[in-house]
Design a protein around this nucleic acid. Structure first.
Length: 878
RNA sequence: GCCGCGGUGCUGGAAUUGGUAGACAGGCAGGACUUAAAAUCCUGUUCCCUUUUUGGGAGUGUGGGUUCGAGUCCCACCCGCGGCACCA
C-alpha cells in the first residue's frame, strides 16, 4: 500500500474493505484452538429482500466475527444463498417466468443490502445452493448415502400440499395441519417416495445432544421429536378358532409391562396386517362388512386434519380373540384408529384401569376394567384411571412389587416364556426426501424396468462392493451397510445411481412450465431429459424426475464454506470422492465444527436435525472428522412490528432495514437492533430506541473531534477514566463471549457519558490518544463505519481499524485501592462508606461503629457483624 | 395434558450468579438557549408517608420457606409465550 486513503464516508469504507478484502480469511488455520467459525443461518433470497430478522441475526454474527478477528483468531465468517425451494418457484409460476431468472436478481439485492449493513463476510467463499458446482456435491453426497444403504423407495400415503402440488416431510406440516411454507391445508396422497433412513441414527442423534452447547428448549424439541420410549414387546397368541389366518400372533409394544395383568383386550390399528387377513378369511359376512367399512372410514380420516378428531375414540370388535400370555385368558381383539399403524407394532394391549385412552375406549364399548396397580400409600385420593407407577395387585406371583421392578421382572418372565422382550421405540420416522417440483436438485438416479423385472438392485452389481469400500475401508461399517442393504434391497430393484463422473446432473432449462395434477414432477414432461440408458444393462431407462427437498442444500453448506475457495475453476473436472477425501476432509479437520451458529428457533427439528443426521452418517464412513456440526447454537428472537404483531404485508406493518439505513445510517441500525433487547428475546421494533442510539453515535464523533483539534485541550490520562476504560474492556469481553450485545452497548454508553462529562468539566481529554483508540476499538464491532471513519480521518491512522488488535487487559489496572462498602443493618442498606481494600475484620468493625448513621441502630444493643471481604457488611442487631 | 422459556418502574430492559434492585435507553415533567419551534444541554422521575431537608416505610406475578442477607435458592400456586400432543 503506497497511497494513503482517508475514509470519510460509508461509501469510502465499503469500497476500501472490499478492495482490500480485509474480511477474507486467506489461509487455513494452523491451530484448531486458534480459529472461530461464526455462522449465521444463510438466507433464502426472496424478492422482499433482507428483513429486520435477518438484520438482527447477521449483525449479531458480524459483531462476534469482528470481535474474534481483532482478538487474533482465524475467523471464518461466510455467507451463501439457500436458493432452491418453493417460494421462488411459486413466484415464478405466478409471474410466468422461471426461478433461474429471478434468483440471481434477488441475490444481487441481498448482497447489496448486506454490504450496506457493513457485514464482514468472506466473499471468496460465496455460493448459491443452485449453482451446478454446488449441487454437484449435494448429488455426490446423495449417492454416497444411497450406497450406504440409507435411501430406499416406497409407496406411501404422504402429506401432500394441494397448492404447491408436492409431497412433504412430516416436519414441514405444522400442528394446525397446514404447510409451513404456504399455509395451505395438507392432504394425503399415495406417491412413490425416496425415504432417508434417519431412523438408523435415532439413538446417536439423541445421545449426542447432551454434549452440545445449545439452548435447552431446542435440545428438548429434538428429544421429543426423536421420542425414545423404553418398554417391552409382548406376543399374544391369536385364537384362530378354525379360521384360515396367515398371522398367528399379535405383537404389541408397551412401556408398562407391569400392567399386563390388567390387559382386558388387544387393540390393533386399521392398517395392521391382521385386518387384511380377516377380510380375506371366512369370518361371517356382516362382521366382514363392518370391518371393511370401519377401515375405509378411518383411512379417509387421514385426509382430514388429525387434530380435529382428537379424543373421540371409535373402534370395532374384530370377532376373534387372543390368549393372554401369563393368565391364558381369552381377550377380545378390537380394531381402532386411535392406535397408529406406524408406531410401535401398530397394536396395543388395552389396560383401561391404568391408561387414559384405554379407559375412555373401554367405557365406551363396555370392555372390563381390571385394576392391577394400586397407588403408593403416600398418594392421596383415588383417580380413575390411575396412570402413575404404584404397587402391583391382582397380578399373580408379582403382587406387591413396585411398578419399576415389576417392569423388569415381568419382561424377564415373558422372555423366558419366549413371549416377549425388552424393546425401544422411537417416534422419529424416515425422512421423505422426494419433491414433485422443478426447482430443486435433480436426484441422480436412474430406473431400469428390465433390471427391476430381473430383481437386480445396485448392491448386486459387480462394482458395488468396490464402490462401498472406496467410501470406507472400515470392515465393521461395511458390514452395517450390507445389513442395511439386505433390508431395503426389495425396494430398490432397477434403481441405479449415476456415476460420480457424470455429476452434476444438470437441471434442464425450461422456458415455461406448469405443475401437474398427477403428483408427478414437471421434469417428467421433458422426455429427452428423462430417457437414458441403464447404467447396468444399457437398455432404455428413465431418470428419477422428483427433486430433492430444499433442506438438502442446507444440510451440508457449513462444510462447503470450509473449502469453497478451492472451487475456483467453474469447469473443474475432479474425481469427487478423491477430492473429498484428500482436499475436503483436511479442511474440515481445521475448520469444523461451527463454533457459533446463530439462527431462529423455527428450525429446531428441520434444518438442525437434518444437518446433524448428514454429519452422523458421513462420520460413520469417515468422510467428516466430527460428528456434530454446530458446537454452540444461539437463537435469535423474532423481530415484531411496532404494534407487537408479526410483520406482514397484509397488515402493512413491515419495516425495512433499507429505509432506516437511508434515514439514519447503517451503524445506527446495527447498534439499535443489538441494543433494543437481549439477542435471544422476541422484541417489537421501536423507533424510540433509534433516537437514543443516534445521539450516542453522534456524541462519539464529537468526542473524538477533541483529538483532531486539540490546540486548547490537554491530552492526559485521568486515573479514574483510565480505570473505567479497563473495566469496560473486561465488560465488553465477557459480554461478547456470552452473546450479550445489549449490555455491552449499555456499558459503552455509560463510559462515554462519564468520559464526555470529564472532558467538558476539566477541558482535558482524560485519555491519551493511545487509550482513546482503545475505546474506538471496543466500539468497532458494533459500529464499523463510524469507527473506521474516526480512525482514518480524525485520528489519522493508517489502514482500517478492523484489522487492528483488540485492546489487551492488564488485570492489575483493574484493581482500585479504595472502594464503596455498603453497610446493612438487619439486611437493610443504611450507609455506604469509602474504604481501603483488604482491611481486616477488626478494622472494618472500628470504621463501621464510628459511622453516625449506623450508631443509632445499635445504641447499646448486642450485635453480630458479618463481613464479606471487599464486598459488604451486615450488622445483625438483636 | 406434557415439555421448555419467561413475569422487575410509564416503556424496552440492567443486576458481577446469594451481597447497594431499577444500570443503559426511551417517554414524561420542569428549566436553560431561542422571537418561536426543532436540535442541544441541565435537573427530576418505583410507590407511599413526612410542610421541606434530614429521614422513614413498602417494593421484583401470588402465598409460604431456607439464609446474617433472596429478583436470584426450595415448596405450592397464578398468568403469558413457544413447542409437542390418541406415540401405547
Amino acid at each position: 500500500m503506497t497511497k494513503k486513503i482517508v475514509l470519510k464516508t460509508e461509501e469510502d469504507c465499503k469500497r476500501f474493505w472490499l478492495e482490500n478484502r480485509i474480511y477474507d480469511l486467506r489461509k487455513v488455520p494452523s491451530d484448531k484452538n486458534n480459529k472461530q467459525y461464526v455462522l449465521v443461518m444463510f438466507p433464502y433470497p426472496s424478492g422482499q429482500g433482507l428483513h429486520m430478522g435477518h438484520t438482527r441475526i447477521y449483525t449479531g454474527g458480524d459483531v462476534l466475527a469482528r470481535y474474534f478477528r481483532m482478538k487474533g483468531f482465524d475467523v471464518l465468517n461466510p455467507i451463501g444463498w439457500d436458493a432452491f425451494g418453493l417460494p421462488a418457484e411459486n413466484y415464478a409460476l405466478k409471474n410466468k417466468t422461471t426461478p433461474q431468472k429471478i434468483v440471481p436478481e434477488n441475490i444481487l439485492n441481498f448482497k447489496r443490502q448486506i454490504l450496506d449493513l457493513g457485514l464482514s463476510y468472506d466473499w471468496s467463499r460465496e455460493f448459491s445452493t443452485t449453482d451446478p458446482e454446488y449441487y454437484r456435491f449435494t448429488q455426490f453426497l446423495f449417492t454416497i448415502f444411497f450406497k450406504m444403504g440409507l435411501l430406499y423407495k416406497d409407496n406411501l400415503p404422504v402429506y401432500f400440499c394441494p397448492y404447491c402440488k408436492t409431497g412433504l416431510a412430516e416436519e414441514e406440516v405444522l400442528s394446525d395441519g397446514t404447510h409451513e411454507r404456504c399455509g395451505e391445508k395438507i392432504t394425503r396422497k399415495l406417491l412413490p417416495q425416496w425415504l432417508f433412513k434417519i431412523t438408523d441414527y435415532a439413538e446417536s442423534l439423541l445421545s449426542e445432544l447432551d454434549n452440545l452447547d445449545w439452548p435447552e428448549g431446542i435440545k428438548d424439541m429434538q428429544r421429543n421429536w426423536i421420542g425414545k420410549s423404553e418398554g417391552a414387546e409382548i406376543k399374544f397368541q391369536i385364537d384362530k378358532n378354525g379360521l384360515d389366518l396367515e398371522l398367528s400372533e399379535i405383537v404389541v409394544f408397551t412401556t408398562r409391562p407391569d400392567t399386563i395383568y390388567g390387559a382386558t383386550a388387544l387393540v390393533i390399528a386399521p392398517e395392521h396386517p391382521l385386518v387384511k387377513n380377516l377380510l380375506n378369511s371366512e369370518i361371517s359376512d356382516p362382521i366382514k362388512q363392518q370391518i371393511s367399512e370401519y377401515v375405509k372410514k378411518s383411512s379417509s380420516k387421514l385426509d382430514l386434519n388429525r387434530t380435529d378428531l382428537n379424543q373421540d375414540k371409535s373402534g370395532i370388535f374384530s370377532g376373534i380373540y387372543a390368549i393372554h400370555p401369563l393368565t391364558q385368558e381369552s381377550i377380545p381383539i378390537w380394531i381402532a384408529d386411535y392406535v397408529i399403524g406406524w408406531y410401535g407394532r401398530g397394536a396395543i394391549m388395552l389396560v383401561p384401569a391404568h391408561d387414559e385412552r384405554d379407559y375412555q375406549f373401554a367405557k365406551k364399548y363396555n370392555i372390563p376394567i381390571k385394576k392391577v396397580i394400586k397407588p403408593r400409600d403416600d398418594v392421596k385420593g383415588s383417580v380413575e384411571p390411575y396412570t402413575d407407577y404404584g404397587v402391583l395387585e391382582n397380578s399373580g406371583e408379582f403382587d406387591g412389587l413396585s411398578s419399576k421392578s415389576a417392569i423388569e421382572q415381568i419382561t424377564k418372565k415373558l422372555e423366558d416364556l419366549n413371549k416377549g422382550s425388552f424393546a425401544v421405540e422411537y417416534k422419529l420416522r424416515d425422512w421423505i426426501f422426494s419433491r414433485q417440483r422443478y426447482w430443486g436438485e435433480p436426484i441422480p438416479m436412474v430406473f431400469c424396468e428390465s433390471c427391476a423385472k430381473n430383481k437386480i438392485a445396485w448392491i448386486d452389481t459387480d462394482s458395488a462392493n468396490d464402490e462401498i469400500t472406496a467410501i470406507t475401508d472400515n470392515t465393521k461399517v461395511v458390514d452395517i451397510i450390507n445389513d442395511r442393504w439386505n433390508k431395503i434391497k426389495k425396494y430398490l430393484y432397477g434403481w441405479f445411481p449415476l456415476k460420480l463422473s457424470d455429476l452434476p446432473l444438470l437441471l434442464p432449462d425450461v422456458d415455461f412450465y406448469e405443475l401437474t395434477e398427477t403428483g408427478e414432477s414437471p421434469l417428467a414432461n421433458i422426455t429427452d431429459w428423462v430417457s437414458v440408458s441403464c447404467p447396468n444393462c444399457g437398455k432404455p431407462a428413465k431418470r428419477e424426475t422428483d427433486t430433492m427437498p430444499n433442506w438438502a442444500g442446507s444440510s451440508w453448506y457449513f462444510l462447503a464454506f470450509c473449502f469453497w475457495d478451492l472451487i475456483k475453476d467453474k469447469t473443474l473436472k475432479i474425481d469427487l470422492l478423491d477430492f473429498w477425501k484428500n482436499k475436503v476432509v483436511p479442511r474440515l479437520e481445521k475448520f469444523m465444527p461451527v463454533d457459533w451458529y446463530l439462527g431462529g428457533a423455527e428450525h429446531a427439528v428441520l434444518h438442525l436435525l437434518y444437518s446433524r443426521f448428514w454429519m452422523h452418517a458421513l462420520y460413520e464412513v469417515g468422510l467428516v472428522p466430527e460428528k456434530e456440526p454446530f458446537l454452540r447454537l444461539r437463537n435469535v428472537g423474532m423481530v415484531l412490528a411496532e404494534d407487537h404483531k408479526k410483520m406482514s404485508k397484509s397488515r402493512g406493518n413491515v419495516v425495512n432495514p433499507d429505509d432506516f439505513i437511508r434515514e439514519y445510517n447503517a451503524d445506527i441500525v446495527r447498534v439499535c437492533i443489538m441494543f433494543i433487547a437481549p439477542f435471544s428475546q422476541e422484541v417489537a421494533w421501536s423507533k424510540d430506541v433509534i433516537k437514543g442510539v443516534g445521539r450516542f453515535i453522534k456524541k462519539i464523533y464529537q468526542t473524538y473531534l477533541v483529538y483532531d483539534n486539540s490546540a486548547n485541550i490537554v491530552e492526559n490520562n485521568d486515573k479514574k477514566i483510565f480505570l473505567e476504560l479497563q473495566r469496560l474492556i473486561s465488560k465488553v469481553d465477557s459480554d461478547l463471549s456470552a452473546v450479550k450485545f445489549n449490555t455491552a452497548i449499555a456499558s459503552l454508553m455509560e463510559f462515554l457519558n462519564l468520559w464526555t462529562d470529564y472532558i467538558a468539566k476539566f477541558n482535558k481529554t482524560g485519555l491519551s490518544r493511545d487509550n482513546a483508540k482503545k475505546y474506538l476499538k471496543l466500539l468497532s464491532p458494533f459500529a464499523p463505519f463510524i469507527s473506521d471513519i474516526i480512525w482514518s480521518s480524525i485520528l489519522k491512522e493508517e489502514g482500517s481499524i478492523h484489522t487492528q488488535k483488540w485492546p489487551e487487559l492488564n488485570m492489575e489496572d483493574l484493581v482500585e485501592e479504595e472502594f464503596d462498602l455498603p453497610i446493612q443493618v438487619n439486611g437493610k442498606l443504611r450507609s455506604i462508606i469509602r474504604i481501603k481494600r483488604n482491611l481486616s475484620k477488626q478494622d472494618i468493625e472500628k470504621i463501621v461503629l464510628s459511622d453516625n448513621k449506623i450508631m443509632k441502630y445499635i445504641k447499646n444493643r448486642n450485635y453480630e457483624l458479618i463481613y464479606i471481604p471487599n464486598k459488604i457488611v451486615n450488622l445483625v442487631v438483636k
